[in-house]
Structures are given as structure tokens and as C-alpha cells.
Amino acid sequence: MGYSAGAREEFRGTAEPADRKIVLHARGIVKRYRRRRVLTGVDLVVRAGEVAAIVGGNGAGKSTLLKICAGLISPDKGRVTVSGSVGYCPQNAGVMGFLTPGEHFTLFGTGRGLSRRESDRRGRRLAGELDWSPARGVLAKDLSGGTRQKLNVVLSALGDPDLLLLDEPYQGFDRGSYVDFWRSVWAWREAGRAVVVVTHMLNRLDRVDQVLDLTPGKDRGIR
């Protein structure tokens, strides 16, 4: 793992008691794409009120691991146990281009058991936290790339899932939105939710409780 002790300290964020409920437990995850081994026995434990970052270069298997944790693809070996509900934010796409953000809120809110009005209210509140005010009547296909990604983040967090899996969620965000995003992440942590963020790199803002580095040859998991 290539982070200095100072950086480790910075990533650590607020201290977390080890007796908190485990929300995500991935054990011995192995995944190959044809002959190429992408994940070789990866373990990850994330507790309630923790933020974990998964880092590594292109092709290191960050998105693959997150999809396995979300149950979107199967590993070749290993198991994942989740305690509670899951929200997943894909790296891109994931929305219906010809629906408005409000219609997305209603649709995803229905899955979470929310009424139309409550879905819209919560969706707009989450959007506001990312400094976005969805205009009525604008279709998702007409949103900018960054705003569409904000829609993905809002949809994953709608209904307050216990575990949030975010795959490079801030692609296309401007600096202000990036800061707003991390504020939201810290608020979710304070609310007792487990958050896993896939990222290319961590900077000073990204204070997290643990880092899982999937770069080949690096030690895994700093706490």
C-alpha cells in the first residue's frame, strides 16, 4: 500500500468502534476475466458508520469488486454478506434517458416502498445537498454528464439504504460538487450508514475510515 503514515492518519477520519454492526462482509473474492485474474482473494469488512475507499489503477478490479458486493455479477470464488438494504451508484449510465429526474425519484422510491410525493421530496432534498435543483420537464438525456451522475448518486441514496456502494460517483463533478459530495458521504456516515467509494485516487478531502488498495503487489486494507 503506497500511502504514508500521515496520509493514513488523514484517511482515517473519525474513530470507529470495532463493535459496530458489520454491514458488508466480503470474503475471499476471486474473479477472473478469461485468463486474467482481476481479484485474488479480496476481503473487505465495512461496519455501520464507516466509509471505505477502494483504490487502484485502471483494471485493478475496483468496479468489479463493487458489482460483486452489490450482487450484480458473480465472483469465481468467495462470499458476500450484507446486513440491510443496498444502494448502488454506477460509474455512468444507469438512468432512463427519456424520463425526468422527478420520474426517476418516483420509480426508485417505489422500489424502496415510498409514496410518489415522499420519493420526490426526498429526491429533491438529496439533490439539494449536491447543489442541484432538478428542473421539472427536463429529460435525463438532456442533463450534463456531471448532473446525470448526481442523479445516479441521489437514486442510490434514496430511501436511506444501510449500505451505499458508489463507483467513482463524482465523474464530471465540478470542484464545488465534489466537496458537496464528500459532505454528503460524511453525513451518511454520521447517520450510521456504511459507505464504500471506488476512486482512482484519494486527496486531502477524502477522509475515509479504511482504504482497500487493489493495485497488484500492494498490501491490502489499511485501518
Binding site: G71, V86, G87, Y88, G94, M96, T110, G111, L158
Partner: peptide, 15 residues
Amino acid sequence: VGGREIEPLLALSGF
């Protein structure tokens, strides 16, 4: 085909 990306997310949300 157009719904392939969003359906797994909807299933994850509770559908």
C-alpha cells in the same frame, strides 16, 4: 435492451 442497465438497479432498490 434499453432497460438492461437500469433494471438491476431497480431490482436492488426493491423491485
